[in-house]
Amino acid sequence: MSNDTVIEAKDLDLVFETNDGPVEALRNVSLTINKGDFVSFIGPSGCGKTTFLRVMAALEQPTGGQITVNGVSPEEARKSRAYGYVFQAAGLYPWRTIAGNIKLPLEIMGFSRQEQQERVNSVLQLVDLDGFGGKYPWQLSGGMQQRASIARALAFDADILLMDEPFGALDEIVRDHLNEQLLHLWARTQKTIGFVTHSIPEAVYLSTKIVVMSPRPGRITDIIESPLPKERPLEIRDSAEFIEVAHRVREGLRAGHVED
């Protein structure tokens, strides 16, 4: 394991016991994520991409194999608050203002009042929500709410950002805009990002590494190191390289499906 390795999974298995018998959510999953990587997990529903992300976050326990986050177990990493997690829904508390929502993790982690305020101001700026701190969630659009929830995950300055289909519920135009902003944010903060999606263009546009997964059992079928440059205007999606990568992702997804 090199110094740059942030997440290392080896031969992970995860079997859920359900009423209809055991379900293999993950089988034999191995992956290394390095510092500063932007890794997308893509695949049809049931392929275990969300489960894999939840294992990294210690929200699920693998039934076999090893995984380390920052060199320790995911549980330890959670205790040391190593990552921020963004869910599909913004999940802001309606009784708190945007600033109050961003303060939630800071209060729980015991930051001083002054530091809370400073951090709220800086992350609001990062997600382009300057001046919205005093507003309540219902006063904001869906895209703005999701940005606020990203700000909440960034507030305590964890090195890793885990995002589970954060823009899945938003329309295409808002989504493009947020993707662009997310890349800017990633460039500025140098964070390591794990990003679950089922949109091929989104995965290709954002990632340095694309992990293609397929279902029953959930497994990795392809890992693609993106040849695209770090600087990515939206127009890059019309370039030959982009289309080539997208094609390879689609092939990977199709290969997973044929075995069905």
Partner: peptide, 23 residues
């Protein structure tokens, strides 16, 4: 999802009660 969010912050049960469940 709300409960998972608090877990990712490693919040104590008391914090979960006062900040989420009670409101």
């Amino acid at each position: 999802m709300q409960l998972d969010l608090l877990r990712t912050y490693y919040a104590s049960p008391a914090q979960g009660f006062w900040k989420l469940r009670l409101p």
